[in-house]
């Protein structure tokens, strides 16, 4: 029986017409649903448009300009204004791709021991200190703008490198050190969450067996927090890979295959930052920049995908 049918029955049988009712507020609910639904739709549309527009521009290099995939991803010379011996413009993006991955991996390598050590300390050893002092401090670190990090890099790290190994001081190592500072709070706070999520019963079990705190951390806590820590590392890498200005300010911006940690190099982001303002829309040198942006975009999607895969694997394990 439908509600309407019931209503008619009750109206006949009962004298209390006011008993059955429909609230006049249905409209409020509908309106709320529409307004908030529109907000969500807007965000989704923006993201889809962004991916579509960047990719369609980026693909023009290969479709409209006819650059072979091999000479873009495999070429080691970047000089879009000149043609190579084979008549194909010199748009080898490998130096930047290698540069981006080098600074990403190296900065993670530098930041990881500090981030992991700090999160172990604040979860396992001094939780009060962690929540009251350390977390607010790392939040300050998150808030420092990337140009300011770049400036600190220029003012301290580059001269320091110059003094240490000679040369200009610009290069992959300088960029990685600056980046390490920038991704430290990301990795620290995510791995802190991962460690804090390990149930206390696990620790009690280990302590009950007479293990020390350190044995408990290494033997029980870290293994069970591993998926979360991996996620933290990937998120840190994602941030490092996409960081533009701080890297551009200290890496030296030489679009050549990296020859070492101490010589100028470049990354996808640094070339984009420097170049985009100088090339006219629709020309080949501009198109290849968009192709670099597309690579950057796809890489950040890959990082998310990896995080999801880790999450799913972790969930499956727990079942």
């Amino acid at each position: 029986m439908t509600a309407i049918g019931e209503k008619t029955v009750s109206n006949k049988s009962e004298s209390t017409a006011e008993v059955v009712g429909v609230s006049p507020k249905r409209g409020i609910e509908r309106r709320g649903q529409i307004i908030t639904g529109l907000c969500v739709t807007l965000v989704v549309v923006l993201v889809v448009t962004l991916i579509f527009m960047v990719c369609s521009r980026g693909l023009a290099t290969f479709t409209k300009d006819g650059i072979p995939l091999g000479s873009f991803f495999g070429g080691t010379t970047w000089n879009p204004h000149q043609n190579g011996a084979d008549g194909v413009p010199l748009v080898g993006a490998l130096p930047m791709i290698v540069g981006s991955f080098s600074v990403t991996l190296l900065s993670c390598l530098i930041a990881l021991p500090f981030a992991l050590g700090a999160s172990i300390f604040v979860v396992e050893i001094a939780p009060g200190f962690g929540s009251k002092i350390f977390r607010p401090l790392t939040e300050v670190l998150v808030g420092i703008p990337s140009v300011v990090f770049g400036l600190v890099g220029l003012g301290i790290i580059v001269p320091w490198m110059r003094g240490l190994v000679g040369g200009t001081g610009y290069g992959i190592l300088s960029a990685s050190i600056v980046l390490a500072f920038m991704i430290l709070p990301t990795i620290t706070s995510l791995s802190t969450d991962a460690l804090a999520a390990v149930p206390n019963s696990y620790r009690d079990g280990s302590y009950g067996l007479g293990c020390t705190r350190w044995q408990t951390i290494v033997g029980v806590v870290l293994p069970s927090a591993l998926p979360g820590i991996l996620t933290a590392i990937i998120m840190g890498m994602s941030r490092a890979f996409g960081e533009a200005l701080a890297v551009q300010m200290v890496i030296g911006n030489a679009a050549q295959m990296p020859q070492g940690l101490f010589t100028p190099a470049s990354t996808l982001t640094s070339v984009l930052t420097m170049g985009m303002g100088n090339e006219a829309m629709g020309t080949l040198p501009n198109d290849v920049l968009w192709a670099l942006a597309m690579v950057l975009l796809i890489m950040s999607l890959v990082f998310i995908l990896i995080v999801h895969l880790i999450g799913r694997k972790g969930a499956a394990k727990n079942d």
Binding site: L46, L50, S238, M276, A293, S300, I304
Partner: peptide, 15 residues
């Protein structure tokens, strides 16, 4: 979508 947006490099958003 929101997660994607949050992980996009800001230079890509700017472009």
């Amino acid at each position: 979508a929101i997660e994607t947006l949050s992980s996009l490099p800001s230079i890509v958003v700017g472009l």
